[in-house]
């Protein structure tokens, strides 16, 4: 048995139907597995949704999970991206309530790290940060003392790069 727990990324193609997400979630929760992050949207074919799930597990558990997901009739394909060459991104929207002193520092950071300003109002900003998990963690650390009021962070999206 492999006891080593790591973060795994699974890409699942499913039929775009009302109960499919519940079936996927139930497959995890029914066996006591946690979904660390989830992200879903339709594919080029609007009848098919792609769901990217990250979960903490060892290899053995992951193999079981992939088999169980494959058993669902609305699951068309399961791809384990763990260990594959793939692009991974998260996004966070951050709302800041800033004073004048902070405004300048925020704009400086935006320029330095290549973040995006979504709105710039007298009472503060909404920023968009896209990157890998470490990029997002770093952005949140930087913004915390700069009047960070709230943020919304997406799950990981991932795509195998297709050349090995």
């Amino acid at each position: 048995m492999d006891p080593e727990v790591r973060e795994n990324t699974i890409s699942i193609l499913v039929n775009n139907k009302p109960d499919v997400l519940a079936r996927i979630a139930g497959t995890f929760s029914g066996r006591g597995f946690n979904i660390e992050s989830i992200s879903a949207n339709v594919t080029r074919n609007p009848a098919v949704t792609k769901i990217i799930i990250t979960t903490l597990s060892n290899r053995e558990t992951l193999t079981k999970l992939v088999k169980l997901l494959n058993r669902l009739l609305d699951v068309l394909e399961v791809e384990d991206l763990t260990g594959m060459e793939s692009a991974r991104r998260e996004m966070v929207l951050v709302r800041l309530k800033t004073n004048e002193h902070q405004n300048a520092r925020v704009l400086k950071a935006v320029e330095r790290y290549g973040w995006k300003v979504i709105s710039n109002e007298p009472e503060g900003f909404v920023l968009e940060v896209t990157g890998d998990r470490e990029d997002i963690d770093r952005a949140l650390t930087i913004l915390e003392p700069l009047g960070m009021d709230d943020f919304t962070r997406t799950g990981t999206v991932a795509l195998a790069n297709g050349h090995g």
Partner: peptide, 8 residues
């Protein structure tokens, strides 16, 4: 018949 049974 069920692959989830094998190695379970």
């Amino acid at each position: 018949i069920d692959p989830t049974s094998i190695e379970k």
